[in-house]
């Protein structure tokens, strides 16, 4: 071809260069477009599911909370902020808020201290620690229903093991789950036990992340194991403890199963935590409007609490 039309080649050359340049640009754009499309393709399953089961429900909750509904969940009437106003005026919401705060107070510090003790002791370089590490992780296998069923039996007023052991040391029987002043404490005991595996694993991995040489040099300086732990290890562990306290408080505010299974919020509302109120409102009384208002209130409370923790507590956290 070149030999047949030698005169055509020279003047045409710049145009060809330009053409290949635009072709190259087009190709690049096409490739970028393809890459972008591929990105969204990979994201698509998550995006679709999140839209249907997270974003839409969030909007729907807000919508429902401004309405009254019939038992099928159909909106019956627009009531504006009335659901919220009624909740704030009723003693029930304040009671469940109080119960939930108490529940968090009983379970979170106790759970963290217990986890610290177990993690601190099993981190010692001694024989057989693997066995103890496994034992303390076992509660991870528990579900809220298996744990609750077991403890309902342990708590039984006449046949339960706890009152039997108490009678052995001469203490009177306790109405664990039916005495309003004990019920929440009993559920907290069970909850601390149930969550101990999780706390333990988190704290143990935190301790394992503390640099060995720092601990060793403290020991060489003559610090005993307890002093080493309190003065050297714990400050380095504060990010983990902080993380755990944030997660535990959120967990405490979201507890439901053990209350549903052990006391149904009773006796006399003494264990009616926030999520149980939501459940009762929405799925027993079929008031999806007020139920949604309660759920959004809880969402706001959790957000505020988490924010406060980050604003106040995090300043005391020692990041390396």
């Amino acid at each position: 071809m070149d030999a047949q039309h030698p005169e055509l080649k020279l003047p045409a050359a710049p145009a060809v260069v330009q053409e290949t340049q635009t072709a190259h640009k087009d190709k690049l754009r096409a490739r970028r477009w393809k890459e972008g499309a591929l990105g969204y393709l990979f994201l698509a399953p998550c995006l679709v599911l999140f839209t249907i089961f997270l974003f839409y429900p969030l909007v729907k909750s807000v919508y429902l909370s401004f309405h009254l509904t019939d038992p099928r969940g159909e909106v019956a009437a627009f009531v504006g902020l009335e659901n919220y106003i009624n909740l704030a005026a009723s003693g029930q919401m304040w009671n469940s808020l109080k119960v939930t705060l108490l529940f968090a107070l009983y379970t979170v510090p106790a759970g963290i201290v217990l986890g610290l003790i177990m993690a601190g002791l099993t981190h010692a370089k001694l024989k057989g620690m693997k066995i103890f590490q496994f034992i303390f992780s076992v509660p991870l296998a528990l579900s809220v229903s298996t744990a609750s069923v077991i403890w309902v039996m342990l708590f039984h007023p006449s046949m339960g093991m706890f009152n039997y052991f108490l009678s052995k040391i001469g203490a009177g029987p306790i109405q664990w789950l039916t005495d309003p002043s004990w019920a929440l404490i009993s559920i907290s005991l069970m909850t601390v036990w149930m969550q101990s595996g999780f706390n333990y694993i988190v704290l143990l991995s935190g301790i394992q992340g503390v640099p060995e040489d720092i601990v060793e040099s403290a020991k060489i300086d003559g610090a005993g194991p307890i002093r080493t732990f309190v003065q050297i290890v714990f400050p380095l562990l504060t990010p983990t403890v902080f993380f755990l306290s944030v997660v535990s408080i959120i967990h405490a505010f979201q507890s439901f199963g053990q209350i549903h299974l052990m006391t149904k919020g009773g006796p006399a509302g003494s264990t009616e935590v926030f999520v149980y109120s939501i459940y009762k409102e929405a799925f027993i009384n079929y008031q999806f409007g007020t139920g949604s208002a309660l759920a959004l209130t809880l969402f706001a409370i959790i957000m505020i609490l988490t924010f406060i923790q980050f604003a106040v507590l995090e300043k005391k956290v020692h990041y390396q």
Binding site: K60, L64, A282, S292, L298, F299, M303
Partner: peptide
């Protein structure tokens, strides 16, 4: 989305599934 607690989504999701 990790901040959205399940209580907020459970009522609408229940109604959706139903």
């Amino acid at each position: 989305t990790m901040m959205i607690p399940w209580e907020v989504t459970i009522i609408p999701n229940y109604l959706t599934i139903k």
